[in-house]
Design a protein around this nucleic acid. Structure first.
Lengths: 85, 85, 85, 85
DNA sequence: CACACGGCTTGCTAGC
DNA sequence: GCTAGCAAGCCGTGTG
């Protein structure tokens, strides 16, 4: 059975390696995009934009505008109740 | 100066929008790759692989093997000193 | 030198253990406080408060009010430029 | 109804404030413990200990020893299959 | 001395 | 409802 086990092991090993390499490929894709994105932020910063705000804008645009509005209304309500306005 | 200001505002606005759209494009790329990657993990899990371990393997392979070995040696040293072996 | 080494090892080991136990003690303190805090959020939620907003309020109160105001002004400026108001 | 509303508002406001202050109290407790803990790490580092490893040790000790052993066995299996040993 | 980088911590989301 | 995984923000570190 040694041969067979060896065979199965090789299959398993190759299968495992295959999956991991696919994962790593997508990891590389993510990194590539993240680097490009970072370059845009760097450029924006050099031009005087506030990147922290830029990030907030990007996050806001991801969300449903209605949900954002509702959350802000609730937040304002709480802030007002606490004298934070 | 209203016209000029209006003009500059439009430039600024378009510039800002342009940068944000580039950022969002890369964001979409990241998401696409992340989704594909997640699908591989899902597939692996369905096949009986331990995805938590898989993630550790991927993380290990990212690092310098020598550095990993050294860290593990130090960790073992500490564990032994503490009777954790 | 075995005895001496053994001695030093014991010292080291006890010192290591001592530090770790102090760290763990503070870890327990953190957990205790975190649990109490979570209970307040749970209670608030049961009473109908929006805990997500509550967390934002707590975060806002941590910050310098002037800095918050300035950031919000900048954010509004960007949002307006992008037609997000 | 203005008076009554004002009354209820005040109740709400005080209730809200009360909860937030309790949350902030626990937040302060967490910070206090975290600062003390950080000081131990700083001290350890000054004495030549590897704080990254120390953190791993602390994390390991939190977990069930059997679960740790099992995970490490699985990890080794995967690493061996991939020629990472 | 500012700036980018990596690690750590925290908050959010999705899946069991 | 809870826990694990994910992404964002923060902070301390090292470098130009």
């Amino acid at each position: 059975m040694t041969a067979k086990e060896g065979h199965n092991s090789r299959i398993i090993r190759e299968h495992l390696e295959d999956m991991i390499e696919r994962i790593e490929g997508f990891e590389a894709d993510k990194k590539y995009a993240a680097d490009k994105q970072k370059a845009v932020y760097t450029e924006a910063k050099a031009l005087g934009y506030d990147t922290k705000i830029l990030r907030k804008i990007v996050a806001l645009r991801k969300r449903d505008p209605g949900a954002v509005a509702e959350e802000e209304a609730t937040l304002d309500m709480y802030r007002e109740a606490l004298g934070m306005l």
